[in-house]
Simulated scan of single mutants.
Amino acid sequence: MDDVESRRRADAETFVANLEDELRCTAPGRPLSVLDVIEGSDSSNLVHCMVRLDGYPLRIDIMSGWWMSVGADGVANAVLQAHGYACEKAGIAKLLLRRHGRDWSTRSGSRQEPGDPTQSGDHTDMDAVTDILQRLEKTASRVSTAMRRFERRHHPEHREITGPHGLFTLTLRGSFIDGARVDMIRLGPEDASALASDALAALTAARSGTSRNGGS
């Protein structure tokens, strides 16, 4: 296991442990704070994406040092990595909530089903976490492949969503994210904040089914 996989596994285990703690201490029907914001990072740990439990993007941060470590040619993919990993953690959370007999709509004001007394006090060990991660990865891979085939067959044309600063463009095929790119000519090391804002706007527009590229 390389350093990136080790770091992500440790991060996922901490996330699961914190969620398990809240599940033991929080009555059914109450929101779980650990699920208010779910964070994922890219392999450099310099690009971070925060999502809700349903995968809706909330925030993107591009940290100092990104220009040298990630670079203009790698930052678009880094954003997608961070977003994808955050959504994977959200998927792990949903599996654990179902395992505990809880509805996965856990935001404030949302309904939760009563906990299963045979499961709600059962702590998930790290072997279980590993199994969940492996099953989620396999399932996500199969779903991703199936979605790509479907979209290519039924939506052969690409659709693009560009952020308001014109620095980040998301490419979609139907509703499926097919890739991303940045404006290599205009982008500079001082543009981290504007780039993050553009990426968030594009991902949000893709999620809501709207476009923000000044015309497409």
Rank of each mutant, 00 (worst) to 15 (best):
A93T: 02
A93Q: 02
K94E: 14
K94P: 00
L95V: 11
L96C: 14
L96E: 06
L96D: 03
L96K: 04
L97W: 01
R98W: 14
R98D: 13
R98I: 07
H100A: 12
H100M: 11
H100T: 07
G101Q: 07
G101L: 06
R102M: 09
D103A: 14
D103Q: 12
D103E: 14
W104M: 09
W104P: 08
W104N: 09
W104C: 09
S105V: 11
S105M: 15
R107S: 08
R107Y: 08
S108G: 14
S110I: 05
S110D: 15
R111N: 13
R111L: 14
Q112K: 00
Q112S: 05
E113H: 10
G115P: 10
G115Y: 01
G115K: 06
D116N: 11
D116A: 07
P117V: 11
P117N: 01
P117M: 06
Q119R: 13
S120C: 13
G121H: 08
G121L: 03
D122L: 14
H123F: 06
H123R: 15
T124I: 13
D125P: 04
D125I: 06
D125Y: 01
D127I: 04
A128G: 13
V129P: 04
T130G: 07
D131H: 11
D131N: 08
D131A: 12
I132W: 02
I132L: 15
L133I: 04
Q134T: 13
Q134I: 12
Q134R: 02
R135P: 00
R135E: 14
A140V: 00
A140N: 09
S141K: 10
R142L: 12
V143W: 05
V143R: 07
V143P: 00
S144H: 10
M147D: 10
M147P: 00
R148Y: 01
R148G: 06
R149F: 03
R149S: 08
R152G: 08
R153A: 12
H154K: 05
H154V: 15
H155G: 01
H158W: 11
E160C: 09
I161K: 06
T162A: 12
T162G: 09
G163H: 03
P164D: 10
P164A: 02
G166I: 01
G166V: 02
L167F: 10
L167Y: 05
F168R: 01
T169E: 13
L170I: 10
L170A: 04
L170N: 01
T171K: 11
L172K: 10
L172M: 14
R173I: 00
R173P: 01
R173D: 02
G174Q: 05
G174M: 02
G174A: 04
S175I: 05
S175N: 05
S175A: 10
